[in-house]
Design a protein around this nucleic acid. Structure first.
Lengths: 201, 201
DNA sequence: GGCCGGTTTGACCATCCGGTCAGCTTTGGT
DNA sequence: ACCAAAGCTGACCGGATGGTCAAACCGGCC
């Protein structure tokens, strides 16, 4: 029917596989995950997985590439024509919501970078770097216009990533220290204060 | 000869194994690492590894427990009787130096937390949490005395961890964006400015 | 009902990997 | 020099795991 002739069954099963793979890969890492586990979570048999994807590696790559777009959307959404502090705080808030609502995605991404990004280096250099450079230029312009404090723009972006992703990636540690208390309400308030002070001219 | 009768050979080989295990575990994760790889890096045979340690798991635990002390030392070194801003900036600086000089340790730790800390949860709850609580109390006192801005003390500590460890754990990403430029000089300056602004009353 | 392409699976294979063991070599004390 | 203990290793085992395949199954169309 459509240009990429994909049946209902294909769409449903591919989706189930990618969802299950995200669950298992983000918990166990690439090497720690087994096709049997993914098949079990997806409710399919192992050979059936390999009917839809040629290999374990292909599943991993598919999950990662689907992930990256969602992951970069908040940065893309930072509007060069908006009010600087509001735009940056909005970016921080959206990124923190991503950590809260999609911790598996965050951990899978962290895992991949930790291992040296063997399957993503090309994408990082080809897509992430230009985007960061573009947004860094916007930040620099805002600094030149005196609308936010002068800071290293790229490290400013790094600090947003670090502070927000920490709550997803180190969730176990955070909750252990906080004795299980939900960290997100306090984190949202803390980060807003932090960036307001940091950006004030 | 000594109370823990350990020969020169034992000390040398145990050391070589732990060093090799750190190298391999931090790059590949627990499941991704193999005894053969560790043996190769250590310059020993696989059965010889298992002459010194009873299992792969035991090696991993040994590496992790040696790690934790070094990792928490900078926080322990924060002096309750010192000048607040200097103490906190000193902590940030030491933690960033740890990321720069011991990135493998940072990544191994990150890996363990990412997987849900299966082999460290007890230590985190029994050692890290009390230490954080203790230092959080010191920070709260400084805030009460009006010597630093009032902030959530535990999230303040989290933000120090997040911002400093990011440079070790996401090294590949950081360097990809910066086109290979050494991030540490700029990071040190950026973080000092950030925390000075944040802590100013 | 019968056919056909897409879908599913049980059984199987080859490899990897943690761990064992019997016996060899080296070391150090006397 | 001798010997007992410490240190070391090649060969092997058993289970896990990614991947294959021939055969069975199933749903829509004539």
């Amino acid at each position: 029917m459509s240009q990429h002739r994909q049946t209902r069954i294909q769409r449903r099963n591919s989706e189930a596989i990618l969802e299950a793979a995200l669950e298992v890969f983000s918990q166990q890492g690439f090497r720690g995950a087994t096709l049997d586990q993914i098949a079990e979570v997806a409710g399919l048999s192992k050979p059936n997985l390999l009917y839809y994807f040629p290999s374990k590696e292909a599943i991993h790559v598919a999950v990662l590439s689907r992930l990256l777009d969602v992951w970069l959307d908040p940065l893309r959404a930072m509007n060069p024509d908006g009010e600087p502090v509001a735009e940056i705080l909005g970016y921080v808030r959206r990124k923190l919501e991503l950590s809260r609502d999609f911790p598996r995605e965050s951990r899978l991404f962290a895992n991949e970078i930790l291992q040296g990004a063997p399957r993503m280096r090309a994408v990082i250099e080809g897509e992430l770097r230009p985007l960061v450079m573009d947004k860094a230029a916007v930040l620099t312009r805002w600094m030149d216009e005196g609308r936010i404090a002068r800071l290293h723009p790229v490290h400013l972006i790094f600090s947003i990533w670090a502070l927000t992703q920490h709550y997803a990636d180190f969730d176990v540690q955070v909750r252990a220290v906080l004795e299980g208390e939900d960290p997100y309400p306090a984190a949202a308030g803390y980060l807003e204060v932090l960036f307001r002070k940091l950006l004030a001219v």
